[in-house]
Design a protein around this nucleic acid. Sequence first.
DNA 1: GACCTGACGCCCC
DNA 2: AGGGGCGCCAGGT
Length: 110
Amino acid sequence: MEKPSYYDAVYDVVRLIPRGRVSTYGRIADFLALGSSRMVGWALNQVHGSLEDVPAHRVVNRNGELSGRNHFRPPSKMQEMLEKEGIKVENDKVSDFNSLVWHPREIRQV
DNA sequence: GACCTGACGCCCC
DNA sequence: AGGGGCGCCAGGT
């Protein structure tokens, strides 16, 4: 029985997002060559309760907006967790997003 | 089994 | 600069 779903690959990448940093659906999708940013969202949607293992709160859209906050409970939880990591969130958007956005490619550059 | 929607992103107007 | 439409794949109705 195979479940090679790219899901695991997505979770793996998300898990690699450093604390205090964020990444985007698009970058992850591009890094994994999924072809669609939505797939990342689908995968994270399946996470649901495994959020402890997969820091899905560190994944935002290309504008740094917390587009997935509505899937957290309460929705403000996403912002809460981010702020707990030192990330400033204002008006459902990551402040200084451009500076702290993390590129999966950095893994290879270590 | 067909249709619609969805944690997105890019192109076109 | 802002708004609207299409594409991507999976899952639910």
